[in-house]
Write a protein that binds this DNA or RNA. Structure first.
Length: 338
DNA sequence: TACGCGTGGGC
DNA sequence: TGCCCAAGCGT
């Protein structure tokens, strides 16, 4: 593999075909604000560009600088993050903003790596994109591109060290930020998981997977495990046009988010009476909410009751007509939609 | 190293 | 429709 030619072809392609995204400037322009780079990279962790873009715009409008974000109340940030998923990111985002507001941005990859919610990938991405430093930026796109370029037969995740080594070999000293984004854009728009567009690929000449005739076979993945099903019951308690919401524990699944009162979610349906916020005449909402999490599928029954006066129970009473602004995780928004 | 951690879109 | 997976991180 001619390393210099590879980077040159990729950067030429990027200069012509780079996606226009709210958090970056055109190819060859000065680095964007580190705040915007960091915020977008955290939002993009395991999350699609389409889902991130509107949230990113709202965040930078409401909190234009890292100091503004650092000064925001936790509840406001969690609410603004609602719907994006992986809510630990929002908690780490605030913790990180407060460190940076107090101490400034670390200027190198090792320092960035110490920040909450900033792992190997994100540290390398910020160092290269915001600070122009040479770094080996390896995300899922880069893994796929490397697996195909070198026709790596070892399954992911065991192949990760090898894929990183290949990426390190190819990383140029010139335009490191644009190069990192070029590789990711290539993976997102040309070297896609299914139906890769090899005809449009600027580096197909050097791609081993293409010569096999089945580039989509790469990367090889370890066999997946079946997703178990859990069952639970949630409670919709209404008094005078208000619904009872609770705050979930700060860590774990949907940690720190507003929620409907609910039973635990277990592999077998179990009695829900003990988990009900009050002992009243609950009526079942017809049907069942199915919601897929990363490692299980939830089937949630909803019980509903309407009372004439508020019982003395923990939680907050939220007006029904503004529930859309409560910042509920998608699961509970679905449960309330019926 | 393996698992826990959300959600939505594409095919 | 069910399945795949997306700019991963923390423990």
């Amino acid at each position: 593999m001619p390393v210099d030619a590879f980077a040159r072809e990729l950067l030429d392609w990027y200069d012509a075909y780079a996606r226009t995204l709210p958090w970056r400037g055109p190819p060859g322009t000065p680095p964007p604000d580190p705040y915007r780079v960091w915020l977008s990279e955290v939002m993009l962790q395991q999350t699609t560009v389409a889902a991130v873009a509107p949230h990113f715009e709202r965040f930078v409008t409401r909190w234009p600088t890292v100091a503004d974000l650092a000064a925001a109340p936790d509840a406001d940030v969690m609410q603004a993050w609602a719907g994006l998923g992986y809510y630990a990111r929002a908690r780490n985002l605030l913790a990180c903003a407060r460190v940076v507001a107090a101490s400034g941005w670390p200027r190198d990859e090792a320092g960035l790596r110490e920040l909450p919610g900033v792992g190997a990938y994100t540290a390398a991405a910020i160092a290269s994109i915001a600070f122009g430093q040479v770094a080996v930026v390896v995300d899922g796109n880069v893994e796929r591109v490397m697996a195909r370029l070198f026709a790596v037969e070892t399954p992911i995740p065991a192949a990760r060290p090898l894929l990183r080594a290949h990426a390190a070999t190819l990383a140029p000293a010139h335009r490191p930020g644009d190069y990192a984004q070029a590789l990711m854009d290539l993976g997102a728009t040309v070297c896609t998981p299914r139906n890769p567009r090899c005809d449009a690929c600027p580096v197909s000449l050097w791609c081993a997977a293409r010569t096999t005739g089945d580039p989509a076979r790469y990367p090889i993945r370890a066999a997946k495990i079946p997703r178990p099903i859990r069952h639970g019951t949630a409670f919709r308690l209404e008094v005078d046009g208000h619904i009872l919401l609770v705050r979930r524990p700060p860590r774990g699944l949907l940690g720190g988010m507003r929620a409907l009162p609910s039973t635990e979610w277990s592999t077998e349906p179990s009695d829900w009476h003990a988990a009900a916020p009050v002992a009243v005449d609950w009526r079942p909402v017809p049907g069942e909410v199915r919601h897929v999490f990363t490692h299980f599928e939830l089937r949630l029954r909803v019980m509903t009751a309407t009372l004439p006066a508020r019982p003395a129970v923990p939680g907050e009473w939220w007006p029904v007509e503004t529930l859309g602004a409560a910042g509920l995780p998608t699961l509970f928004a679905k449960a309330l939609r019926g």
